[in-house]
Design a binder for these strands. Structure first.
Lengths: 161, 161
DNA sequence: CTTATTGCAAACGTTTTGCACGTTT
DNA sequence: AAACGTGCAAAACGTTTGCAATAAG
């Protein structure tokens, strides 16, 4: 069960390496390197976790209150980063999406229905099984997501559930 | 691998039995049985598949053009049916949710990224593993969802992917 | 006759877009 | 100088809500 308790919170890349990769992607696509884009990337790196665009927008504003960054830029940059595989998103129905830096190892999520806490884990057996399932149904797999919902240890204590 | 090729498209209940269950739920909760609610349930039963509220709204209108059913009623009824466990929903980020009748056995979904087709499957091993994972992280599991994305056999043929 | 339900339209929160202006290359 | 990116405000989108009228129990 050791595989589950690995620490998925640490990006496997230094910030400089990440920034270089981002710049390279921008160059390759004829896009421009801007202060706004860097601020957003940095905010994702520094506060590792899962953020809604709105929350990320607030983080970026706090980080640099002088720069009057717009929320549209946050959305546009998150879209760009996701398209290029630098961030990944988790859907929460009509409550929108949350984004996290995608420079960590692949993992799935377990979400507390009471406090919203998100814990990451990875199970090799399931990972492998998913590929097998896709193949046996004639699909070529491009992606997958697994979410477990439950009540986290802390919230269980509060109401002995 | 036989477990995968089971046919999940057939509701395990007759429409009459389903309707009876629905009426029983309504009675138990002091709610009322209305023509609109039945129309929506029937549309879900007859067109087994995964529908957005908007599409379901259209189906219901076609089924009975005289009754001027409102989309708010579709939302309200879907919410009610989901709360009572008669339907379940699949989230598609900011693109909303799709609903299906939940009177079938538990299953997961594989979704074609090109044509949107949804195929259902179930893998006992993964089902069991999810419970184990939740426990080992101290969570009590309340729900889970697994989505595999890929390209379906038909779409692969079209572009030999 | 009481209470829940309906359709409508307005409100809501999130995400996208058009545009004139700014910045990067 | 050319092309892309920005902030802003407006629009779009899916969903929810307040309300007066209606239907079910």
């Amino acid at each position: 069960m050791d595989e589950l308790i690995k620490d998925f919170s640490k990006p496997k890349m230094s910030y400089d390496a990440l920034l270089d990769e981002f710049k390279e992607i921008l160059r390759k696509n004829g896009l421009k390197y801007t202060k706004q884009r860097e601020l957003i990337l940095k905010a994702l790196y520094q506060n590792s976790g899962h953020f809604s665009p709105e929350v990320l927008y607030q983080l970026v504003q706090e980080e640099d209150p002088d720069m009057n960054i717009g929320i549209a830029t946050v959305y546009r940059t998150l879209g760009l980063l996701e398209d290029e595989g630098l961030v990944s998103s988790l859907s929460f129905g009509s409550q929108g999406k949350k984004y996290e830096l995608g420079t960590k190892e692949h993992h799935d999520h377990i979400i507390c229905e009471r406090c919203g806490k998100i814990v990451e884990f990875c199970d090799e057996e399931i990972e492998h099984k998913q590929e097998t399932i896709a193949q046996s149904l004639g699909f070529s797999m491009t992606d997958h997501s697994m979410k477990i919902y439950g009540i986290c240890p802390e919230c269980r204590k509060e109401t002995n559930t």
